[in-house]
Every structure is written in structure tokens, then in C-alpha cells.
């Protein structure tokens, strides 16, 4: 009897391994479309366009970039809107191929939750906003201030940690269940400052009746590097996704845009030619089409173009990029792609 159980078990294990051997890459290519988990409710990052019913946003464009790299068509994507709670399950159950959904990389998510993260595509962080009339220039001048934020979030904990580490006395923290209540309390003068992720602060500042009267303080209280993620133990698929994200950053560094791509395709610089797949086998080595970079740029654009489209000065949801962490490393930011060679 025991032997029978053993045989059955080992058989099951073997089949499980057999299944695991098949990379998601092959599944996606066979299916002919990408299934991408997104956020449908994050201003600027993922939302539904009111006319076409299509998903739009910064994160959504990375799904489109993957689709462009694989199929030479940015629209062969099926979007699955995911909630914050469901996003990791969706990967664990194989529901989606990849998730781009403003998710912070943390140790526990990489470890015990069991997903693998792609390169960071947006550096967020907790910030503090005050009214200009308060005359405060730095977070360190807020001793004794009343600060508002929303309940049960990491922002609440980060702020109390910060106050404790400064050894301040008399600081008060007011919390509300949703950020619109937080913001109303702030505008009506019940608190001196509000705190949440900087990308969120920018959005709320833009909504205010007089945005000029508000200041977002320069300090960042917590690190929130946002990145896409996918399955653990599927290196082939993960590598491909990783380098597709890097390609957008490297393209910006080279100065290749949707518009001037055709000129660069005529370039005789070896680094550019390799990057665009005109020579060498960079793409093939990843199991991708050799010209995957050119496809991404043609259909979606480089990192800067993606950023400006959704978060740039001409978008309603403007998050300044110049000199921020999201700028290229050549301009003092953290966006840095390993070399394509």
C-alpha cells in the first residue's frame, strides 16, 4: 500500500515538474495574446478611457510594450483588472501572465508571497503636503503639527515612526477612512499637513481649487519602488519581461523615440544596431524576436515618452520628473538600464 502511495505521489510530482518545465513564454506565444493584470482605478497609472472603453495609463503601457515585443502589435492584450488583494493570487493561480499594477517591491512579497519582480518602472515615496501660508519648507519643521492621513495604511505607520525617530512631542495624527475625507479636513484647516504617496499628493494638489496655494515638501519618508511582477521559477519568461522594461529605459538614454526610430534604424553605430536587432542575436538569446526593442519603441515609445504621455506636464495628472528619482541616471535620477550587449 505504502509503495503504491509513493508511486502515485512521485508520478504526480513528475507531472507537476513536467508542467513547470513549460515556460509561460510558450503559453503566451501559443495563445497569441498576453493576459496582463492591471489597476483599473489608479489615476494616471491605469484607468478606462471614457470613449473607447480601452485601458489607458502608465502601467498599461508596459503591458502594451510586452505585447508589442512579442507580437509586433501593442493591442494583443487582454486586461484583467485586479484589486490590491487579488493581485498576488492572480499570479499564483496562473490567471494572468504578468502584473503591472503600481506594486511596491518588498522583501516579503518577493520571498514568502512568492512572486518575482521586474525592474522598477516608477519610484514613488511617501511625501507631505502643506499650505503655502504655513511657511514650512521642510518636513523637519513640523514638530507639534497635526497631520492627516488615511486609516490602516503604511503611511500612517511611517509617519508615527518618523515622529518617534525625531523624538517630537505634541504631534497629533488624524486619520480618516478615505483620502477625500483626509483632503477635506486638510482644506478646512483641521490639520496642518497631509501625508500619502507623492504621486497621490500630486493628483490631489491638482484637484484643489487653488493648486498654487499648496506645497509638496521635498523630503520622501518611505521608499515605494513600483514594479511589475510575474511567476517565480520561470526565468525565461521573467528575463524576457525584464529586458523589455529595460529596453524602454535604454531607448531613452540613446535618444530613440517613436518619431526618430526610422533614422536610428539606418544608423551605423554598432551599439545602436545591436540594440535595435539589426545585427547580433540579443533578442534571440532571450527567446524574443530579434527586433523586439524596435517593436516596443515603434508601438509604445521609450520610457520618457510613456511617462510624459500619462504623467507629463501636458497630462492632467502631472508628476514632475526632472531631477526626480524617475529621471534617467544621466540626469540625476535612478532610471538605469544595464547595457544591451
Amino acid at each position: 500500500m505504502k509503495r503504491l502511495v509513493l508511486i502515485v505521489l512521485s508520478f504526480l510530482l513528475l507531472t507537476a515538474f513536467g508542467l513547470a518545465q513549460k515556460s509561460r513564454m510558450d503559453v503566451v506565444m501559443e495563445r497569441g495574446k498576453l493576459i496582463c493584470g492591471v489597476n483599473g482605478k489608479a489615476p494616471g497609472f491605469g484607468y478606462v478611457d471614457e470613449k473607447t472603453g480601452k485601458y489607458m495609463g502608465f502601467d498599461v503601457d508596459f503591458c502594451r510594450a510586452v505585447s508589442a515585443a512579442l507580437f509586433d502589435d501593442p493591442d494583443r492584450v487582454e486586461y484583467v483588472p485586479l484589486t490590491a488583494k487579488a493581485r498576488f493570487n492572480a499570479i499564483q493561480t496562473g490567471e494572468v501572465d504578468v502584473v503591472f499594477r503600481n506594486t511596491t517591491i518588498t522583501t516579503s512579497r518577493d520571498g514568502s508571497v512568492g512572486v518575482d519582480f521586474l525592474p522598477v518602472n516608477f519610484y514613488d515615496g511617501q511625501g507631505v503636503m502643506v499650505k503655502k501660508e504655513l511657511g514650512v519648507k521642510s518636513v523637519y519643521e513640523l514638530e507639534g503639527a497635526t497631520v492627516c492621513t488615511n486609516q490602516g495604511t503604511t503611511t500612517e505607520k511611517n509617519w508615527t515612526d518618523f515622529v518617534r525617530s525625531q523624538g517630537w512631542k505634541g504631534n497629533k495624527l488624524l486619520t480618516f477612512e478615505s483620502f477625500d475625507k483626509v483632503f477635506n479636513a486638510f482644506m478646512s484647516g483641521r490639520c496642518d499637513a497631509v501625508t500619502t504617496d507623492k504621486s497621490g499628493l500630486v493628483g490631489w494638489k491638482a484637484k484643489a481649487p487653488d493648486p498654487e496655494a499648496l506645497v509638496i515638501l521635498p523630503e520622501t519618508l518611505s521608499k515605494e519602488p513600483l514594479a511589475g511582477f510575474t511567476f517565480q521559477n520561470d526565468s525565461r519568461w521573467r528575463d524576457a519581461l525584464t529586458w523589455i522594461v529595460y529596453a524602454t529605459i535604454q531607448a531613452e538614454e540613446f535618444g530613440i523615440t517613436q518619431k526618430n526610430l526610422d533614422e536610428f534604424l539606418k544608423s551605423d553605430k554598432p551599439a545602436i544596431r545591436r540594440f535595435l536587432g539589426l545585427e547580433g542575436t540579443l533578442g534571440k538569446g532571450l527567446g524574443l524576436p530579434n527586433d523586439f526593442v524596435a517593436r516596443v519603441i515603434r508601438h509604445v515609445g521609450n520610457y520618457g515618452e510613456i511617462y510624459d504621455r500619462h504623467l507629463g506636464p501636458n497630462s492632467p495628472f502631472f508628476i514632475p520628473r526632472k531631477g526626480s528619482l524617475n529621471d534617467l541616471y544621466t540626469r540625476g535620477g535612478l532610471m538605469y538600464s544595464p547595457p544591451f550587449r
Partner: peptide, 20 residues
């Protein structure tokens, strides 16, 4: 669970930068 029913669509509309 992320299904786009009527209430979900309300939240989706509200996250469109044009209708914040």
C-alpha cells in the same frame, strides 16, 4: 474581486484624470 460591475465603473470613471 475586480469585476467591472456598475459600482466598479463608478470608481473607474473617478480615476480618469479628467474626472478627478
Amino acid at each position: 474581486i475586480g469585476i467591472m460591475d456598475l459600482l466598479s465603473m463608478a470608481q473607474v470613471v473617478l480615476s480618469n484624470p479628467k474626472f478627478l
